[in-house]
Design a protein around this nucleic acid. Structure first.
Lengths: 209, 209
DNA sequence: TCTGGAATCACCCCATATGGGGGATTACGG
DNA sequence: CCGTAATCCCCCATATGGGGTGATTCCAGA
């Protein structure tokens, strides 16, 4: 791909912000705003006329939410890179946006120049994120370091969470099925649960596995 | 916390690189190398003498691997921030490192100055990553957009993966247990599997859920 | 040296979950 | 009008889960 001008759409219901971003981007060489919208519906309608390389997407919008918008745009035109630009930084929303297909996530307290960097970054295969968002994302991988479970019990719980049966787990760990049953009983007791579903739910919630 | 000098340890078996990093960091105001090591064992032994704020950790090391090292350091002294600095960028290793407790991940093709930024970043609550690593991490959240499953089937599979039983799923979705059974039969047929465990395994592998 | 936790294995009972087979109806959209 | 999705129903054999109780080995910390 030649390093031609990057085509950008903005979906943002605040006029001031939308025009501010547009002005900044349009006045920079190599970047071009092809269209701006106050809602997802209109942006999606014109997706194949606009042919944006990058969409800057707000989350709270009139009508369709930004999350839904991301999903639809990625479904219709997967090569479109989407960067969320929002004031919201709660983990729930961040993960929903990333699952939906966002390739970057910036909070609006950034330096304006960061926006240009981010657009360049995502086009080059990166995933631009504000620092607190990056930390949130990385933290989501990390296990609870104060697990009440023994290493062996954790191992058993992991296999249980993969849907394996007692006997399959026993085979995987080269022990008897009865041993697994004992481990699971101990796990249930420690986690104060009484079934697989509860155990897995609690384990995921507390990041024990 | 006052913005005092940041105390840094390096664990890296290549002398040239280790000394290069040390020189760069020590010659920068506000940063101080308290010790450098060629292996994890020695670094861990001196952890409470060194009291590092940040550890720069290589992955491939003689003796204990960097991954194990990260785990041990975070267990012994959780407030230590660890940045992986390595040539390896395969997803397996990246996720293992992050799960073990790494707070950042840089590949060695970075600009040297990036190292200083990264150290500052992680101390300020960020999660410094090379661009390709960030993309890898973000991609890991995104679902397969070509799932053979219907939305309803996906929903059922998600609950199944949470360890729920047929009847619990039925209750959750306000339908009959038999409906769930039919969905699951169809899921098994589409995924070409014959049990819960296989279905969940395949679903996770193909990012269907 | 003693104690306790971790990990292992065993046997009991019994309800229900599971997987495979068959067939059926409604409802929506191209 | 046809196909697909979603819903529901039946039968059946077996696997599995959950609860109870008890025991052995081994290792590390008090």
């Amino acid at each position: 791909m030649a390093s031609s001008t990057i085509r950008i759409c903005i979906v943002e219901d605040d006029n001031i912000i939308r025009n501010g971003f547009a002005l900044l981007i349009n006045s920079t060489f190599g970047y071009r705003i092809v269209n701006t919208y106050g809602n997802c519906e209109d942006a999606i309608k014109n997706l194949f006329q606009d042919e944006p390389d990058v969409v800057l997407m707000d989350i709270e919008l009139p009508g369709m939410s930004g999350i839904e918008g991301i999903e639809k745009i990625k479904r219709l035109r997967p090569k479109t890179d989407i960067i969320v630009v929002t004031v919201y930084d709660n983990p729930q929303l961040v993960f929903e946006a990333l699952c939906a297909g966002a390739g970057g996530y910036l909070t609006k307290n950034m330096q304006p120049a960061r926006l240009l960097e981010a657009i360049k970054d995502i086009r080059e295969g990166g995933a631009p994120m504000s620092t607190q968002i990056a930390r949130m994302v990385v933290s989501s991988f990390q296990k609870n370091r104060n697990s009440p479970l023994t290493p062996r019990e954790t191992e058993v719980l992991e296999l249980l969470a993969k849907g394996k049966s007692y006997s399959t787990i026993a085979d995987d760990l080269f022990v008897d099925k009865e041993t697994i049953r004992t481990h699971i009983k101990n796990i249930y007791w420690k986690l104060e649960v009484h079934s697989k579903a509860e155990a897995i739910e609690k384990a995921l919630k507390d990041k024990l596995i």
